[in-house]
Amino acid sequence: MKEKIVIEALTKAFYQKEKIHTAVEDITVSIRDGEFVCLVGPSGCGKTTLLRIIAGLIKESSGSYNIQREKKESPLQSMVFQEQGVIPWLTVRENVAFGLKMRGLDKRIVKERTDRFLEKVGLTAYARQYPKELSGGMKQRVSIARAFANDPEILLMDEPFGALDEQNKFILQEELLHIWAETKKTVLFITHSIDEALLLADRVLLMSAGPGSIVRDITVDIERPRTMEKVRADPRAAELFVEIWNHLQEEVQKGRKGNSS
């Protein structure tokens, strides 16, 4: 399959008051079209920084990235933010339609796509309500619908389920897999949960902290469609879990030593 996202020697450093902090250093990786990739690493390893660069929210210090464009009218990327990313003064429907409206699309197309994705995430009945009336899980459904409705070339997700309780997390993860399987989008997904990564991803990129770089590239060869139970029962998943866990533990230990010295 052809390459969709190509990241080359990407580095981001923050400079403030004579101090320089390198958040991500020399990241080179390419992601194929339709791939679901999870970035896993200890907190503070620069995974959010990497995502924000690709989202166009901050500028890289050096290096480059490129997102392959296929459809001229599609936006390059759309992001699913952490829990508070749903705009409180817009109704559920207006939130889902947000990207489409910003692009000035025809009203009929906006309505048709908004309806379709409201339906997909099961929020049709809540379309006219404000986010304050929704639970955390429902808010994240709004966020996911907003990103998919925008029909971008790639999707970026920044720990979208991090603030949810276990049950809601499982339900939303499987829903996300359903929608993803239908649309076959390329997804770059940040998480610190190994279980989440093994359930969702085709590939797991392991990051190390200080400065953040990609140290391992693990292919998750568990057959799809996946469900929570299937992945839990799969011996291959158990192996991968241990492999990732060992690496993360090492990284956390290194981080501790680095701090104390």
Binding site: Q84, I87, L90, M102, N150
Partner: peptide, 28 residues
């Protein structure tokens, strides 16, 4: 909250949209 400005930017809001869809209702 800064995150709403990020959302607007990520979804391609114009200056007019920032003004009318984010700043005005958000500050009301």
């Amino acid at each position: 909250d800064r995150i709403y400005l990020d959302v607007a930017r990520n979804y391609g809001a114009s200056s007019k949209d920032f003004f009318l869809k984010i700043a005005l209702p958000g500050s009301l």
